[in-house]
């Protein structure tokens, strides 16, 4: 597994555990009321599991297994940028739910995530090709 995929997948495993922890708190709170602030964890729970767990894992595995040129994976810089941008965006989106004065944060978070996945698509596009080059 290449180094970048290790970063993507390990980050996704961490997000899975943090997302599951928040989810467990939310579910337990339905059974026995813990604290009124627990419900404010819901956006973070969703973001961590959708973007953090599912999307980062998918991109990490895609970087690893998509067709290559001999041993080369093409221009890796956009894929590294994707890792950085998606993580930054994710934390901005999560923080936005807890910092009501910073309304722009959600916009910035979503924009960084969108830029990140666009950068990854730019990297991956030429790798989506037949195994035998014509």
């Amino acid at each position: 597994m290449p180094r970048l995929s290790v970063w993507f997948v390990r980050a996704s495993l961490i997000y899975l555990m943090v997302g599951f922890t928040l989810g467990a708190l939310l579910l337990a709170n339905k059974g026995v009321f813990l604290h009124p602030l627990v419900w404010r964890l819901l956006p973070a729970h969703i973001e961590l599991l959708l973007m953090g767990w599912v999307v980062l894992l998918a991109l990490g595995v895609a970087f690893w297994i998509l067709p290559r040129w001999q041993t080369k994976r093409g221009n890796e810089k956009p894929a590294w940028a994707a890792l950085l941008l998606i993580n930054l965006g994710l934390w901005c989106v999560i923080a936005a739910a807890w910092l009501p004065g910073y309304d722009d944060l959600l916009w910035w978070g979503r924009s960084l995530e969108a830029l990140g996945v666009a950068a990854f698509a730019f990297h991956a596009w030429p790798r989506v090709k037949p195994w035998v080059e014509g």
Binding site: F20, T21, G23, A24, L25, L27, A28, K30, G31, V32
Partner: peptide, 9 residues
């Protein structure tokens, strides 16, 4: 429900 949350975690 609490048991369910714990088991899934």
């Amino acid at each position: 429900l609490i048991l369910s949350a714990t088991l899934q975690w």
